[in-house]
Each structure stands twice: as C-alpha cells, then as structure tokens.
Design a protein around this nucleic acid. Structure first.
Lengths: 233, 233
DNA sequence: CATGACCAAAGTGCATACACTTCATGCCAC
DNA sequence: GTGGCATGAAGTGTATGCACTTTGGTCATG
C-alpha cells in the first residue's frame, strides 16, 4: 500500500519510533508520561514485542527512560541536561555549517526557504508545529552535508533539544527563530564559513537562552488519545 | 561478584552489548563478520529474544549493520565514515577538555596516569588491548566531566572510532599515543583550557592521520570461538 | 560448460505464553 | 484516623513456536 521503508529492522518498529518522536517533539507527550508496552502496541496495532523494541531504540536516543521492571516514561531532562544538550548541539551544528558554507545549491536554498515559509505560516497555529518545523530546518541542513553519521547525531540531539524545550520552555518562545533561520540561510549560502558557523552557534544559544523557566505541567494523561494522530504516520 | 549495572533494561542484554563492543574494539570481531541471533544467544546463554534486542542497541550505536531479513553484521565504516567520525569526535572531546581544564582533582590525575601506565605495560601485548586502553582513557576523561549526555556521545563515538581503526589502520599504529596521553593529562590539569582543547584536537587528528591504509583482512570467521572470552563479562 | 529453476537449510519477524516484579488498594491492628 | 501488611491487578522479562525470507547448492537444460 504505502511506500516501504526499511531503515534498520522492520519498518513497523520504525513507524512507532517516528510516531513517538513526533509526539514528543510536538509536546503531545511530555516528560514523565508513561509508555506501557501493551498500550503502545495497541495504539500502533502491533504486539508488545515490537513496541518493546521501539522503546529500546528511543531509550538509546535518550527520549525515553527505561528502568528494569518499570513502565517506560518519556525522558525528563534536567536543566543541566538541557544545557549539555545545547552545548553538544552547538558543536555539531557548527560542523554542519562549516561543511555547508558556500556549497549550497540553489535548490537547497529554495528548499530551506520553503521550510522557513512553513514555519512562518504555522507561527500562530499549535505550538508543537512550530517546534517541529524549526527542528526539521536544522535536520534538513544536516542532511545536506551528505554525511550520514553527522546527520544521525544532529538528528538525535535535535530531538533531545526539542524534548528539553517542550518541558522547560515557555510557549511560543521559539517564534523569533524564523527570522534567524532566514538570515542563516543567507550567510551559509554566501558568507565565510567561520562567520556562518558562529551565527549558527549564536542562534542556538539564543534559542537555549529563551528557555530558562522550569514550568511543570499536568500529569497522568491519556496515552491512547494522545497517540492516535501519530499512529497513522 | 563485580558491581552490577542496570543501565537501561535487563542487564543480560547489557552484558551482551558490552561483550560485543569489547570484541569489536579489540579487533576480535572485524567489519563484515556475521552475528546471527541464535549463535549470539548460545554464546551468551540467552534466548534469541535478548540477543536480538542487543543487536538492536548495537545497531543504534552504529557498531552493527542490521538489514531486514538479513543476518546482522559488524558495521563496516567507509573511509569517509571514519573521517566524519573523527571530526565529530574532535568536536566532542574538545568540549570534554574545555570543561575539565584546570578542574582535575589529584585523584583524577592519578587515575588517568594509571590508565596510561597500563597502556605502557600493554604496548607489546596483543594489539587489541592497546586500542581498548586508549579508548578507556578517553572515556574516563569524558566521565570526569560529570555530564552524562556528553559521556554517552563521547563513548559512542569512541567505539565507532575504534571500529574504524580496527578495519582501516595498520597494526600498532596507536602506540605512540601513550606519550601524547601523558602530555594531555599535564596540560588539562594545569594549562589553559583553549590550549588543552587544541592539544586534544591535534592528538586525535594525529591518531586519525596514522590510519589511512585500507587493509582488508580475512572473512568468514568462527563466531563461537571469537566471542567465548567475551561472554563472561 | 554455463545457466537458470528449484528446493532444503538457515535465519529472521513477530506473536504469544508464562513467571516474576511492581504498584495500588483495601484491610486490620493500634 | 494512621501506619503497615496482604493481595490482586497491571506490567515487564524472557523463552518458545511458527510463518516467511534469504541463501546456497543441486540438477536439469541449453
């Protein structure tokens, strides 16, 4: 029916991972939310085996907390974790920009601008969409380096950063990132590499700086309803 | 007997992962070597379920190649992959040194020197031991930052680097790293952070530079005998 | 001698079953 | 009431079984 993906192992597991990742990054799932294997399996129409395997992957990515004999939960990064995550993110995305500066094709510039346009369109919509698109911008940027391992790490750290933001940041704090993304595209396309890398670092620092408040939100939420939109992929 | 770690899920899976990681980093397992689930399970005395889960983790770390319906194999990094891995490694370990410079306790200095002493003692032993100890040096360094996420990434990238070296480097190429490690300790303990970070970067570049030859070694090897020493932990 | 179809062996994909652990609830002694 | 213990429900840990896929070899055929 739909296109077949076979990234690593079975693609049903990949689908679950993607679904949960999206739910996490959009803030639909919040740190501490429980992810029981059976409920997950039921949501996605697979057995516990696969749900369990998916949770293992997500735990390896740091998005899920997995303790023996305990129900898996969405990871709850501490402010210190968030700080570390952004430090690492700066280091990695600096590399992305270094490799990319001056080498973007017009097509790539257009694609990036398109993502920013979507960000602009979504800026008054649900908060999660903004974060997702902003994240997508950074991930696409990494993909354009054509370095698969760098892509992997940037992707992972971006998701972790998104999780950190969703728990620690106040709403709409990522809004002003749009103009910064536009400026980034320009500087990466034309400017000197060092300058572009520095701008990326500043941009990320700014995003991190805007999220200092530690806001707790509600607990004990309804997994089935939350995940329903993400089960279709 | 030894202290028990329950990092993520059951510790039997962790044991398998550790065993295979060690086997890989010491060069006992080479890129392309097959890792069938049953054989693995039998080697470590567990069922396929757990072996499979372990393979999933290792695949997430990039040490194992997992393709649908195919036997898992030890990952085979290309020279380009190796280059990317070392670039990322430099970026991450720079951060480690930045955080550590000037803050090492005497105990920590002593512990690091002890590892280097072990490296010295093992410099004429089996080639794998040298690489393992060198890797341990870098990982311990990262752990001393007390930043768990940084530790995670440094550890992972060190293992990937070790795998790259085991397939691409010529034997004993890591020998001269010993004196560099000693100098690093000194500079991290006393020197200015920037200088220490630069030295770390130079050190890693040197290690990478010493491994340019693409040497293919034998294929189709005996898994059971290879893994036997690693099954006990 | 090369080539392609077929077949069995080996291996993976996945679900299910069962033992064990954790957790929440209620009960009882105080 | 209140603290502590028993108990069952919920959930995880792991092994096993079966269907499907891949693979390598064999044999007939050109």
């Amino acid at each position: 029916m739909t296109a077949r993906r076979n990234s690593a192992t079975g693609d049903r597991m990949t689908a679950i991972c993607q679904g949960i990742r999206r739910a996490i990054i959009e803030g639909a799932l919040l740190p501490g939310d429980r992810l029981p294997e059976d409920a997950l399996g039921e949501s996605f129409g697979v057995s516990r085996t696969i749900a369990r395997h998916a949770l293992g992957q997500l735990a390896a990515e740091g998005l899920v907390d997995l303790r023996r004999n305990r129900i898996a939960t969405v990871a709850a990064p501490t402010p210190a974790d968030a700080r570390d995550i952004f430090d690492i993110r700066v280091a990695l995305e600096r590399q992305v920009v270094q490799h990319l500066a001056g080498n973007l094709t017009p097509d790539q510039v257009a694609e990036l601008k398109d993502i920013v346009a979507q960000e602009h369109a979504a800026r008054h919509g649900p908060d999660g969409a903004s974060i997702r698109l902003a994240t997508e911008f950074h991930i696409r940027l990494a993909q354009m380096t054509g370095k698969p391992i760098l892509v992997r790490y940037v992707t992972e750290i971006c998701y972790r950063a998104g999780l950190s933001l969703s728990s620690l940041a106040r709403p709409h704090s990522s809004e002003c990132a749009i103009s910064e993304h536009l400026a980034l595209i320009e500087l990466i396309a034309r400017g000197p590499a060092d300058k572009a890398a520095q701008m990326m670092a500043d941009h990320l620092e700014a995003v991190a700086a805007r999220a200092l408040l530690s806001g707790d939100r509600g607990r004990s939420r309804d997994l089935v309803n939350i995940l329903q939109p993400y089960a279709k992929g």
